[in-house]
Design a protein around this nucleic acid. Structure first.
Lengths: 157, 157
DNA sequence: GTTCCTGCAAAATTTTTGCATCAGT
DNA sequence: ACTGATGCAAAAATTTTGCAGGAAC
């Protein structure tokens, strides 16, 4: 854990600025808790729970209240800079929403719990088609695939 | 409220038996709470929260504990007779999983809260493709589309 | 200087668990 | 009869709210 050495195309740096701008545009003030949450989200590769964000911030030596983490996350979701995801375990997870509109979905291994992001233009097209057909203006969407990751797959012969 | 007059192709009756069988096969005993929960789920067109299921059962005059509703729902999810869905509001919803493997997903209106189910073979194909490509054995999946339903869409001119 | 953000503690929700009792097999 | 199911109450876990003090604008 350190700075964000990008795995693919590191939108982290850009996202941080985007998030700050979006909050300021919505009339919110800057503050310590806010900076910490944004920095932590930018550093994480994928989604994290409020508790995980909080723990990571505390681990870095900063004193931030869990309630403030929730408040900042709510603001970020409200301005569209963060996406809320739920995997069915009753806990909300949060991840940066890149300003370019690109996004991914998640594969969750039911055995080891690993979460892996994936992208699929085909899937996005299908979803867009559903919105048109149902005359529903789709603003956001989440796809969660549950199953077995390669490591937890019973490898045969 | 009465028996299940099917809206489309009423899998309700068939599902009730399927659910009972699946639970028995898993070694569970029959009981009052269980029958009530299954009957209530079969009667509902789409997903319902544990609290809603409980309220509906009480409204029908039966005395069932909320904890029992949760317990039965957990058993049903475990044997695959019920699907758990989360829309991002921190509450789990449950709905019958037809024995024929068919299933739908959900459109949720962010304004009026209405939930509408939809089906899309194209979407299912795309998801299947993702599993293959990612070498992930997808066992279940959920798709939730958030946006505006026709009634809440700003109708122009 | 005013307003909003922040941390802590308390409250509110949703879900789970303990336990005595009752029902199913 | 034995074992699991059930209802109620209490507990646990997650998220929200109240409030006093401090920072941002």
């Amino acid at each position: 854990m350190s700075s964000g050495r990008g795995h693919h195309h590191e939108p982290a740096g850009a996202w941080t600025g985007h998030a700050e701008s979006a909050l300021r545009a919505a009339g919110h003030r800057s503050g310590g808790a806010r900076s910490s949450v944004i920095a932590q989200l930018a550093a994480s590769d994928c989604c994290a729970t409020a508790q995980e964000v909080h723990d990571a911030i505390r681990a870095s030596g900063q004193r931030v209240g869990l309630a403030s983490v929730y408040r900042v996350l709510d603001q970020l979701v409200a301005v569209g800079a963060v996406t809320r995801v739920e995997f069915g375990d009753g806990v909300s997870r949060f991840e940066p929403a890149p300003p370019d509109g690109s996004h991914h979905h998640h594969l969750v291994c039911e055995r080891c719990g690993v979460v892996r992001p994936f992208e699929s233009p085909e899937l996005e097209r299908a979803i867009h088609g559903v919105g048109d057909r149902e005359r529903f203006r789709v603003e956001t969407h989440e796809v969660v695939l549950h199953g077995r990751c390669p490591d937890c797959l019973p490898k045969r012969a």
